[in-house]
């Protein structure tokens, strides 16, 4: 008994300090994540409340009997279904095209150690989006392509292609080259070495590139607002239009915002490990 007391007394300051450190850490983490959590929970709350609750002051935090009326209203009055289809078509096409041309390019640049080509990709990252869109807008107009989804898919390549190439360069550089060299010695062509040796090994990298390219294409607003006509709006543009027409009606607005961003949030929650890996690599190398 006395031995236990002495031992306890001996380590008490250290244990207290460690406890204080733990409490401090938990408190800091709570402070750091609560603004993020609050905004998304508030979006959910606005989307599920009726108009009376949304206009109440002091604000109502937990909906009294959640309602899906806002979502129904958004889809009924704004043709959101066709905008969703537009977004899906544009983002899937731009991502698929970027993978088909970007993955081999990343391999080629990594193998040829063509760092100047990589630098070009970086300059594309620096350039303001609007400086691509003015010339492309004029081109599309001259070719009479405005009013279709094609210009949107083409401009989204500005986002997806550099991203895929950049992530794949980093990924292929990290792969050991011995297996492909062995294949080449055995008489495989460089295409076969790429297709049957490097490509299967690169699957995790391709996953990361696919997720990030899709998310950034899905989120894009600038190209859509310049190029999209009435029938070719993507979801972010459509939501922005709900804002301009329904300034005061918060429920449908929040519901629309939630519809647009829900796929991305779900993807982030499900694939957080891949996304963090991709962003860390891309971000660190981005300098």
């Amino acid at each position: 008994m006395s031995a236990a007391v002495t031992r306890g007394r001996g380590t008490r300051p250290g244990r207290l300090r460690r406890l204080a450190g733990r409490v401090g850490l938990y408190a800091s983490v709570l402070v750091l994540i609560s603004p993020a959590a609050f905004v998304f929970l508030w979006m959910l709350s606005l989307a599920l409340k009726n108009e009376v609750d949304n206009m109440a002051f002091p604000p109502v935090f937990i909906p009294h009997g959640p309602t899906f009326a806002n979502f129904v209203k958004v889809f009924a009055e704004n043709d959101f279904l066709s905008y969703t289809i537009n977004s899906v078509v544009v983002s899937f096409s731009a991502t698929a095209a970027a993978l088909v041309i970007g993955v081999p390019a990343g391999y080629g640049i990594a193998k040829a150690k063509a760092m100047r080509a990589a630098a070009l990709i970086l300059i594309a990252r620096i350039t303001p989006g609007l400086s691509f869109i003015i010339p492309l807008f004029l081109m599309f107009q001259w070719f009479g392509m405005l009013g279709t989804l094609t210009p949107l898919v083409i401009t989204h390549l500005v986002i997806t292609v550099p991203l895929v190439v950049w992530i794949m360069i980093g990924f292929f550089e990290g792969l050991p080259g011995e297996l492909e060299e062995a294949a080449l010695v055995d008489g495989a062509t460089i295409w076969q070495a790429f297709r049957h040796v490097a490509l299967p090994l690169a699957r995790p990298g391709i996953t990361v590139a696919t997720i990030l390219a899709f998310i950034f294409s899905w989120n894009n607003f600038l190209f859509g607002i310049v190029l999209a006509g009435r029938t070719t709006r993507t979801l972010p543009v459509a939501v922005y239009n709900v804002l301009t027409f329904e300034q005061i009606s918060w429920g449908p607005l929040a519901a629309a915002a939630l519809v647009v961003t829900a796929p991305v949030l779900l993807l982030t929650l499900l694939m957080q490990k891949e996304i963090v890996a991709g962003l860390t690599a891309g971000g660190v190398k981005g300098g």
Partner: peptide, 8 residues
């Protein structure tokens, strides 16, 4: 999506 969070 930036537009969505900007709205909120």
């Amino acid at each position: 999506t930036p537009v969505a969070i900007a709205l909120v």
